[in-house]
Design a protein around this nucleic acid. Structure first.
Lengths: 344, 344
DNA sequence: TGGTCTTAGTTAAACGTTTTTCTAATGAAG
DNA sequence: CTTCATTAGAAAAACGTTTAACTAAGACCA
């Protein structure tokens, strides 16, 4: 915070003894400029510490090289991983990222979207809030720039999307538990209105069914996605007359609550109970025998998201409409010590 | 992604039957416009779905209403909390945030800084990387917009800063452990070159000293800040001939490693060992008796940061130089079950 | 009545780029 | 020696705002 006003392209041009057009062409490597003048221009620019004015540039050129990243909930470690990767990839591709946290509040989400529109972001990546989309798909559909949904899809909205195959995720858990001989399997599923939770449960159910096992509906705990809810649900399950031999927690918060409940009950994993969770929480190392998990391919999701969006961006706003790509990526099973063969 | 080109202020003006100046004044509530015309303008703007072009606006007005947020390491939960709060407060104040993660890489940090300069952010918030600042303070000092350092300070750089009083933090830990009668106190401090770690250690040492206790230098484990380092250090301490009765881990990653080591050793907290950590990690609930911690006031830090920066912004670039404010906020002790009176 | 003050509104300049159009110079071809 | 392309570079227009400078119309006053 010392220098006065920043140098403009005109001052660079004057110092180099050329026209502003030549400076622009040199700095952008567009058009033909002789070696000699290029050298003079570059020297002048360096000497003055010239930094092109992004607003002026985008006003004229129509591109901002800014991406909007609208996240439903930054506190969710899985979303955070996505944010990290997306920021990394975007900046590698020469784009800056405006971060917006909607904190699961549709109102904030809408305001942020309006801001990104005013900002003329070249593209918008949206991890949408769980609720409040019923009447507001329009806000996204009418966006004049390319947009892409991540992790959660919005029903009835014709937009590119990248998500985990959550049915497959549930099925992976089912197959693993069956392989270990489990029959009394419980699920802490979170909110039954949430599409993702439903898909995971469906996957589990159908996976078990295809092995000839019927999921006991009384062992499905539904509530919300908080740690407290996970804890409460776990407590109910553990007090059950016939305790389940395995529990599937469909989300990070829930599994944290589950683990706390198990610790408080003095039970031992996996001797008394097998546990399988979703995604690698940062504290996975704390669970003694290691956590068996089904993971979403966050890296690949980020990568696909950014490359799909950027390809739409370069297609131009004239990109052929009505053929939204909806990409599903496959989860993976990571077996560690928290699941074991059922005691006979 | 449906509508064609976005409407400009001219089209709003034409539809409302007024001049563009009148539209501008109405929308910005600057200058005098009659009720009648205001109504016509607002109606026209709404009808067309007009969203002012931020680049054009800032080109002319000189302000972008964008803040740059340069974070040393997004994966650090404490920094993440700061990011969340800062984004929240900024957006409440009408500013958008460009998020940059330097991932502790000075090179990335420098490139991001250049980008924020080009972007003409109105202000820049920097949580600087640990290393690589020796020769590069210039990059920050020469920034033509207000900047502010958070969490870490850079020696010899005359810039506003908001940090935790880390000496006080160490002292809090010292007093608590002394109150419980601990004498053999170990520290897992991370890198000794890191100012923050040094301050915390200094605080612990001086706190103990003022109670007449000398910190055993052989129980100070120095390495880096990774979980692995924390684990290794803990293992060494636990194997010590005379095991310490309490361990102070100065950072989130380190305490995670420490807890893992304790779990693997089959020791019980706090019966065999008291543990005190810094900051509330998301998995604090997993530790059975609850974690005793010294917390940094992340909310207050974010608040102070944003308000200080924004006041600098409104002071204008002519803000009186050379009187950088360096603000220190006080940590707090949260006593839970992981510390207990030493066994006699 | 004629002059001066306000006031609501318009006109036009300016912000710093990119890009289209134009110019002058060089060289090749006839 | 013309004529015609080709080329490197310059001049100028344009992007969409804000804002300074201007104008016309009342209102007020002597």
């Amino acid at each position: 915070m010392s220098a006065g006003p920043l140098p403009t392209i005109h001052e660079v041009a004057r110092l180099a003894g050329v026209s502003v057009a030549t400076v622009s062409k040199t700095l952008n490597r567009s058009g033909k400029v002789s070696e000699l003048l290029q050298a003079r221009v570059n020297a002048a620019a360096r000497k003055l510490g010239y930094a092109p004015h992004a607003s002026a540039r985008s006003l004229r050129s129509g591109a901002t090289r800014i991406l909007g990243l609208l996240v439903a909930d930054l506190a969710n470690p899985y979303f955070l991983k996505l944010v990290e990767s997306i920021e990394w990839l975007s900046s590698a591709a020469g784009y800056s990222v405006i971060l917006c946290n909607s904190a699961e509040d549709p109102g904030r989400e809408e305001r942020h979207l309006a801001m990104l529109l005013s900002q003329r972001a070249d593209g918008v990546i949206v991890i949408p809030t769980r609720r409040g989309w019923s009447g507001r798909q329009a806000a996204l559909a009418d966006l004049p720039m390319p947009g892409i949904l991540v992790d959660r899809r919005i029903e009835g909205l014709d937009l590119d999307s990248v998500t985990t195959d959550n049915v497959a995720l549930g099925r992976l858990a089912a197959e693993h538990l069956d392989d270990l001989g489990h029959r009394r399997i419980a699920v802490i599923m979170g909110s039954p209105e949430h599409q993702i939770a439903r898909h995971r449960l469906d996957g589990l159910r159908s996976g078990l069914a295809s092995r000839g096992i019927t999921l006991d509906e009384r062992l499905i705990e539904k509530d919300n996605f908080s740690e407290a809810a996970g804890h409460a649900a776990a407590m109910r399950l553990l007090r059950h007359a016939q305790r389940p031999t395995a529990i599937f927690a469909t989300n990070n918060h829930l599994s944290l609550g589950l683990l706390r409940a198990i610790a408080e009950s003095g039970l031992t994993i996996p001797d008394d109970l097998s546990v399988i969770a979703v995604d690698e929480p940062p504290w996975a190392g704390l669970v003694r025998p290691g956590m068996t998990i089904v993971t979403q391919p966050s890296e690949a999701i980020a990568q696909t998201t950014v490359s799909t969006l950027l390809s739409r961006v370069s297609e131009g706003r004239s990109g052929v409409e009505g053929e939204a790509r909806s990409i599903q990526l496959q989860p993976a099973l990571v077996v560690r010590g928290s699941t074991a063969a059922v005691r006979t």
